[in-house]
């Protein structure tokens, strides 16, 4: 059982405790060899709406040109009122999420009170910063963090860069290889006062469009029933949207998505007989 003298007590900081116990991996000393293909997780997006925030992530993980997982999850509850979504090297990212979740819980148990949402966002920033040596060798992790601020009664979003820089976003946040594509879709459609339904439709549309352009982002897989992970964070806490609902929403969006570019079909033989050609 770990006991410390007052001078070197790690306090409520679990990451420091884990470091003292030698449980935190050290960064590789040289760049990861290209022949070792590292699994990467990609596109995640979070959008603010009237009741809080909605977070979503596609389900694909890639190693170079290979799809290494079809059903990976990238959106996790951080604690009751916040969530974290990851992009980057999948192994270190999962480890970071695990450590972050534990960090928040550990703080709460040791101190007897919760960190503020701002405090949680800063904690995650420090973890990303601590990962910089590994990021320099090719194991970058860039999460997004979103939560419902119970003190201010509003949803809040935070985006990071590879150095741990923390940027609060007012309307939406994205990360990963398809992040900017998804971000553009959200940007075009975002307006103040989005309802839950609109917000969920918006994030799955954004992921669909990102998957359309970015090979590392997976689209909905109706054959296997694999859909993006979507979660809402409101005053009620972190709640995963059921796959059945996402599937239903995709079906509902089919016409809209198909009408954008005629379903992507280019008519090969201009028909002389059909009178209803556009």
């Amino acid at each position: 059982m770990p006991f410390f003298a007052a001078s070197d007590d790690p306090g409520p900081d679990f990451a420091a405790l884990a470091r003292i116990q030698g449980l935190v991996p050290i960064a590789p000393l040289s760049a990861v060899d290209d022949r070792l293909r590292i699994t990467h997780a990609t596109t995640v997006v979070a959008v603010r709406y009237v009741d809080g925030v909605v977070m979503a992530g596609d389900r694909r993980a890639t190693s170079g040109n290979i799809i290494s997982h079809r059903a990976i999850e990238k959106v996790f509850p951080a604690d009751r009122h916040s969530g974290v979504a990851i992009a980057g090297a999948a192994g270190p990212a999962m480890e970071m999420v695990k450590l972050f979740q534990l960090q928040l819980e550990h703080y709460e148990k040791v101190e007897g009170s919760q960190l503020s949402l701002e405090g949680k966002a800063n904690q995650l920033g420090q973890m990303v910063r601590n990962n910089l040596p590994a990021a320099m060798q090719g194991l970058a992790v860039v999460p997004i963090f979103a939560g419902f601020d119970v003190r201010r009664q509003t949803g809040r979003l935070f985006q990071y860069d590879i150095t741990g820089g923390r940027y609060e976003e007012s309307n939406f946040a994205t990360s990963g290889s398809g992040g900017s594509l998804a971000g553009s879709v959200v940007k075009m459609k975002f307006h103040e006062g989005l309802t839950r339904d609109d917000a969920v439709d918006l994030v799955i549309t954004a992921l669909f469009e990102a998957a359309d352009e970015d090979s590392a982002t997976g689209g909905p897989d109706m054959v296997r029933g694999i859909y993006p992970v979507v979660a809402t964070i409101t005053t009620e806490g972190f709640e995963r949207v059921l796959d059945a609902e996402i599937a239903e929403r995709f079906v509902g969006l089919l016409d809209v998505l198909a009408s954008r570019d005629g379903g992507g079909r280019i008519s090969e033989t201009p028909s002389e007989t059909s009178g209803d050609a556009p």
């Binding site: 059982m1 770990p2 550990h106």
Partner: peptide
């Protein structure tokens, strides 16, 4: 105890 439990679970 919290530390021991969290470290073990981790």
């Amino acid at each position: 105890g919290v530390r021991a439990a969290d470290l073990k679970g981790f």
